[in-house]
């Protein structure tokens, strides 16, 4: 493929890390220009994101709408071009690849989308949708080979191959998500970005899809970046969790640590906000005040200080760096402690 060899990496890649992200940022700005193009205010969607995804691991990226988690996921696949920073996948600096080389790279990185209704082309049969990546990368030669391969993939994601000539509209949301998963795993990728893959599904279907995704990971060994808007599903699939707020990662660490000893007040609020399906243990919730500020006017200092229940003057003045509170557990809070902050 001609990748990797010539590219000089500034990033030290250890054998364990499949994806290495360093100081990645994205500013959206609509350039004005030629005959009445209007200039828009620029929006800082992602700021200084740094993390790794290990081989075979699932890193969950959690945050509320507008926090930049989907943008970050797309930056990793270069569906959106990063404004700055470095992203290495399996030692290849993807931000420096030509668009042609990047397309070849897509055989190794795939995506599962949130919207099971919109992410499948409505006028193409299931077989055509699943076979598309196979054809692009020349993995099937004949028509028969293609159909056999599609049938195998459909069985693997729990769909009957008899439906391969049907159209997406006939399938339920869960079934469509299975089709999307079959398409993503068709080329045997190493890394899959799953953008809220179950948030549009019913509870019982959610469980089926999450389990399917785990089974496939177990048998094929790829890594996930699992994007989610709350922490409940994540508990069942993630190895590590990163929490985002207003474009920045505010806490990242092993799953156990994040759930048992959340260090950042935002993570604590997120955990406490999930309504627990158990009336016996009605808990006292941390209710955050107000709304997430618009990324267009990012607060000074710690971006969470406008809603933070424990904010101090320093939080307004100084942005806290992401610092280690325990081994592998980092939080960006002036008052981060290894144990929950009494509220």
């Amino acid at each position: 493929m001609g990748l990797g060899g010539g590219d000089v990496m500034n990033i030290a890649v250890t054998g364990d890390d499949l994806v290495v992200v360093r100081d990645v940022g994205k500013t959206f700005s609509e350039a004005g220009g030629l005959v009445f193009g209007r200039a828009q205010p620029s929006v800082r969607a992602v700021d200084g994101a740094s993390f790794e995804v290990k081989r075979g691991e699932t890193l969950a990226l959690v945050g509320e709408s507008g926090c930049g988690k989907s943008t970050l996921g797309r930056l990793l696949l270069r569906l959106i071009d990063a404004s700055e920073g470095e992203i290495a996948i399996d030692g290849v600096d993807i931000l420096r690849l030509s668009s042609n080389d990047m397309r070849q790279m897509r055989a190794r990185v795939q995506m599962i989308f949130q919207d099971p209704y919109g992410s499948l082309s409505p006028r193409r049969s299931v077989a055509k949708i699943i076979a598309e990546p196979l054809e692009i990368f020349g993995l099937v030669q004949s028509r028969k080979q293609r159909r056999d391969r599609v049938a195998e993939l459909m069985i693997q994601v729990g769909l009957s191959p008899t439906f391969m000539d049907r159209y997406p509209r006939q399938f339920s949301g869960g079934q469509r998500q299975r089709i999307g998963i079959a398409r993503a795993i068709a080329v045997d990728p190493q890394f899959i970005v799953a953008d809220e893959p179950v948030s549009a599904l019913d509870v019982s279907v959610q469980a089926q899809i999450v389990n399917l995704m785990q089974d496939l990971q177990k048998s094929r060994g790829f890594s996930y970046l699992f994007i989610a808007h709350d922490l409940s599903v994540v508990r069942h699939i993630a190895d590590r969790v990163a929490v985002m707020y207003l474009g920045r990662i505010v806490e990242i660490g092993p799953k156990r640590r994040i759930y048992d000893f959340p260090s950042h007040p935002y993570t604590q609020a997120l955990l406490s906000a999930v309504p627990e399906p158990d009336p016996e243990t009605r808990k006292s919730r941390i209710i955050l005040k107000g709304d997430v500020p618009s990324p267009a006017n990012d607060p000074t200092g710690c971006s969470f200080h406008t809603r933070c229940p424990i904010a101090q003057p320093i939080c307004r003045a100084e942005r806290p760096p992401l610092l280690e509170t325990a081994s592998g557990h980092l939080a960006a809070c002036h008052f981060a402690k290894p144990h929950p902050i009494p509220l």
Partner: peptide
């Protein structure tokens, strides 16, 4: 539509 982005992600 997401399926256009999906087509890009797939490598078309």
């Amino acid at each position: 539509e997401p399926y256009i982005e999906a087509a890009v992600a797939v490598g078309l």
